[in-house]
């Protein structure tokens, strides 16, 4: 901490849409309220003033997709006492990790006119390169959870963020279950959003990534039993969390079982 005595906060951006940072800005009023508790030292999207490290808490938004970003995330780790993944790109590769299923050059050519100027590698979650102290899930993150984390850091306690299946949350809110009609990722996705999509009659798209201890392989198999094609299952499971632990394995198991038949 600096002479102010307030913890210094940094927000880094890698490959991302900036939506998670925007969520922080959305609660900025409240943030200042935490007894004016934190000093926002480095937050390029919010302020031109960029004070040098070290910082107490660093938030990394985005997947790591270039050699330059690999360096940046390693530097962030060195600069910050606590390092937090801000959102599903940083946590599970998010939307950017969808490209990993294809050859680099192929995807690049599909999207960019001059792929030769790119210097891009496979999209990885932050934890692929450096250790994390906490993860904020979601695409985008939930402002409440961001505040919980900051409060936890201020009093030195690990915040308890939901890490169980969305179905538990969804059932407790008495939503009509959509699973029989739609491919809902609720069973294996982490709760914490208040079952926002099912509440509005839309199936869960898995934006918060897999919950701890859920059965990804069993879920992929169940979807196949229900008649979904492997490509659809792959697309859904990978939509926001292609690089989450267990997803690739679940898909590999499905492919293997299919080939064995």
């Amino acid at each position: 901490m600096q002479e102010s005595g307030r913890p210094r906060l940094a927000v880094y951006k890698l490959s991302s849409c900036a939506g998670c940072q925007l969520q922080i800005l959305n609660v900025e009023d409240l943030l200042l309220d935490i007894a004016a508790a934190v000093e926002i030292a480095y937050f390029p999207m919010a302020s031109r003033q960029m004070d040098p490290g070290p910082y107490d808490i660093g938030f990394v938004e985005g997947a790591v997709t270039s050699p330059e970003e690999i360096q940046r995330v390693k530097q962030a780790r060195q600069q910050c006492r606590l390092l937090v993944a801000l959102g599903s790109c940083a946590a599970f590769g998010g939307v950017p990790a969808n490209k990993n299923r294809f050859a680099q050059r192929v995807v690049e050519q599909q999207v960019y006119q001059h792929p030769e100027v790119l210097n891009s590698v496979e999209a990885r979650p932050v934890e692929h390169y450096v250790r994390l102290d906490a993860t904020l899930r979601g695409c985008p993150i939930h402002p409440e959870e961001f505040l919980e984390l900051v409060k936890g850091a201020l009093i030195g306690a690990t915040p308890r963020l939901p890490n169980y299946s969305l179905c538990l949350e969804c059932r407790l809110r008495e939503n009509a279950c959509l699973f029989a009609q739609e491919l809902c990722l609720g069973p294996i996705t982490a709760a914490g959003c208040g079952a926002l999509c099912p509440r509005l009659g839309r199936s869960c798209q898995g934006c918060r990534g897999p919950a701890e201890g859920v059965n990804l392989a069993g879920f992929a198999r169940l979807l196949q039993e229900k008649g979904y094609e492997r490509a659809i299952i792959q697309n859904q499971l990978g939509k926001y969390a292609a690089a989450a632990p267990g997803v690739a394995l679940a898909m590999a198991a499905l492919r293997w079982e299919e080939e064995r038949r």
Binding site: Y164, S165, L166, C167, L168, R171, V214, N215
Partner: peptide, 11 residues
């Protein structure tokens, strides 16, 4: 092998 650990049944 089948159970997804979702907890819905207990809710």
């Amino acid at each position: 092998d089948r159970c997804l650990s979702c907890g819905a049944c207990t809710a």
